[in-house]
């Protein structure tokens, strides 16, 4: 069970109110997409769940207990950039997660323990399709491969919650589609709760079982900072949910050459 309850949470930076009266329960195993315009506090919301920032008011509970005030191994994260360690090669980047846990003082493993941890790390790399790149440094990887590595790292701790902050935002559309095909089965198999912040509506509808839209419903022209964003839509996207998912999540069948020709040159 990894239920997150957010109760009447406000986030303020000085006079600026970023989020107001945010209340929601996130069920265990949900895939929650978070969308909204730039600067509406989506990432702030994610950072609060992560423990990187504390809400000004309100409480967040995680499995019934108050959320720890700092990031921890039960909540994994993948950022848009800079998520992997540039000074470690691909295998070491995953291995380090096991080393942190098993070697408190040197954070290095040797001998049989290292071998066992390496095998687990290699299995994870295999799962994200990086098996053959284990000895490369992240700088030699493409953007998509770096994000695969960041996901493998996060999975190493078997987190109950995986937080994704625009993880595929910097990728080209083809790579992004591959990443979607990667993340969905991983989420299903591992039964984690996933919260993904994204700008891509198609991605949000296609992957999520639930969609949260953040926006500022009220704006005071004289004091625009006095009203924060709220959750303005909370849609259930699961198969038997009430919201029709407008064909977004269904794979589009590949068209034949003749169909393609007909569409681009109707008079030919």
């Amino acid at each position: 069970m990894s239920e997150i309850r957010v109760h009447n949470v406000w986030m303020e930076y000085g006079d600026q109110i970023v989020l107001e009266t945010i209340s929601l329960d996130i069920a265990s195993g949900a895939f929650v997409s978070v969308v909204g315009p730039s600067g509406c506090g989506k990432s702030t919301f994610l950072r609060m769940i992560l423990g990187q920032e504390r809400p000004t008011r309100g409480i967040i509970t995680f499995d019934g207990a108050a959320l720890p005030a700092e990031p921890g191994p039960d909540r994994g994260v993948v950022f848009q950039r800079y998520s992997v360690f540039p000074h470690l090669n691909v295998l070491q980047n995953v291995l380090i997660a096991f080393e942190f846990a098993e070697s408190p003082f040197t954070a290095k493993l040797f001998g049989a323990k290292r071998k066992a941890a390496s095998e687990k790390a290699e299995a994870l790399l295999e799962a994200v399709g990086l098996g053959e790149h284990a000895w490369k440094y992240p700088s030699a990887l493409s953007g998509g491969q770096q994000q695969r590595l960041a996901i493998a790292q996060a999975l190493a701790k078997e987190p109950k919650v995986l937080l994704l902050d625009e993880p595929f935002g910097a990728l080209d559309p083809g790579t992004r589609a591959q990443m979607h095909a990667l993340i969905k089965p991983l989420w299903r198999e591992r039964g984690m709760t996933v919260i993904m912040v994204t700008h891509d509506l198609k991605e949000a509808f296609g992957l999520g079982t639930r969609l949260l839209a953040f926006d500022r419903p009220r704006i005071d022209p004289q004091a625009p900072e006095r009203y924060g964003a709220r959750i303005i839509y909370d849609l259930d996207l699961s198969r038997d949910g009430p919201v029709p998912v407008l064909g977004f999540s269904r794979p589009i069948e590949t068209s034949t050459v003749s169909q393609e020709t007909k569409r681009s040159m109707p008079h030919a």
């Binding site: 994260v77 950022f79 000074h87 190493a156």
Partner: peptide, 27 residues
């Protein structure tokens, strides 16, 4: 060092000492 890396290390279970030794020192 990007704060993303520091946060990531914490989510991988690193203590302050481990973070210093394995993330900050080499860089």
């Amino acid at each position: 060092i990007p704060s993303e890396q520091i946060v990531k290390a914490q989510t991988l279970g690193a203590s302050t000492w481990q973070l210093m030794l394995r993330v900050a020192l080499p860089q």
